[in-house]
Design a protein around this nucleic acid. Structure first.
Lengths: 211, 211
DNA sequence: GAAGAAAAAGCACGATCGGTCGTGCTCATC
DNA sequence: GATGAGCACGACCGATCGTGCTTTTTCTTC
């Protein structure tokens, strides 16, 4: 059998650059609309030079989803994890998402919101990867809600699944409105709605005190 | 100037068939991914035969958006309008949307949810048409909420804009989850959440009595 | 610095893209 | 039933798509 591939330091760096640009391009053209030629042009590379790193378009898509997940984790999940467990983390993860949008990390808003709708009708590993990530994010929010419930920061009759569903909806509505109208007011509205829904005093500091 | 075009009855019919198929295809491949060749193949027509009806891809996209709006109105808006004005219409419009999803009118779920995210980064008449429709639907929900408020079917301190935003979010979350997982449970959850949010007794009849 | 491997470019392929043109077929009208 | 306009077709355009194969450049390691 052919021995293990030994990537060169040089190659790793360009591969990273390719994947990062691929994620950005995918939020504009979609994961399917992402084209190797377009990608190569943006990187001042040849088509085949880009292509050789992946071997197929699907591998490129998978790499892009993976990278998008890493970025999402760094920009949205990680900031929430440093907040106090429970209700504060629920607020923090939503705020981090809205920050993530207003920061314009990607031109097309949330990568996964777009990718989920685009790949929903295209069974395969790419859709699976997206669904897996989405499940993980949902589970994270739900866990925050469960802890908040245990700490009596939410009404005892609150259903964690329903609350997770609602917060997910607020996040999606914020993304859709912001992408379509580029109006930060949509994000302010989203922050207000999140706080009202969770019974937290409006804005000011993001650190929530136990009620 | 060349006089007004006088379409033939025959042509109108095929044009309708083209546009309807275009809407369906667009929920799978996206408005941009929609290809004339693919469309022609599905209709057992020639590419040029299809193309002649529109003159440009953008015109085809605009026709598809228009048709999607008509379908959405018939399947979601119209059923809501026959309900009793106020709170009942709020519930009815959400239920009609979920019915619209479960009915599988389009393979890719809500046409406008996907189109809004896809065209958000593509300024032009198509994006404008989508934004216009979205504004209209938002205004409709808001109007339902205002009437419900006037009829004291909702708490007096309820903000119509915030409520509209939340319901829009629930709708988007239902669509995203259903598209990604094809699980009707997402829609049941959405119906439950809508009712709980509006303070309506769960399921059974959709006709709401004034509280 | 020479040898070997990895990275990137170059080139070409079949398919498909949106779009144009010319030619008949078909319907509606007189 | 002739005539003119609308309709649909097939052929074709240049461009771009994803994907291979071959060659050249660049790094790494002895």
């Amino acid at each position: 059998m052919p021995g293990p591939r030994k990537p060169r330091a040089d190659g790793e760096r360009t591969r990273e650059a390719i994947v990062r640009e691929a994620v950005s391009l995918a939020t504009i053209d979609g994961l399917e609309g992402l084209s190797i030629g377009n990608l190569a042009a943006r990187l001042a590379m040849s088509k085949s030079g880009v292509y050789a790193h992946f071997g197929s378009k699907q591998e490129l898509q998978l790499a892009a989803v993976d990278e998008a997940g890493r970025i999402f984790h760094a920009e949205v999940v990680a900031p929430a994890l440093v907040a106090a467990p429970g209700l504060a983390q629920l607020v923090a993860v939503c705020d981090a998402f809205f920050d993530h949008l207003v920061r314009h990390t990607f031109p097309g808003g949330c990568f996964f919101a777009g990718a989920a709708l685009e790949m929903g009708t295209r069974p395969g590993p790419v859709k699976e990867a997206i669904a897996t990530f989405q499940s993980g994010f949902t589970a994270l929010i739900r866990q925050f809600a469960v802890v908040a419930l245990e700490q009596h920061e939410l009404p005892a009759d609150e259903d964690p699944d329903a609350l997770t569903f609602e917060l997910n909806g607020i996040i999606l509505a914020a993304n859709a409105n912001y992408v379509l109208r580029s109006d930060p007011a949509a994000l302010e509205m989203a922050r207000r709605v999140v706080r009202r829904r969770l019974g937290v005093e409006p804005s000011s500091s993001a650190r929530a005190a136990v009620g």
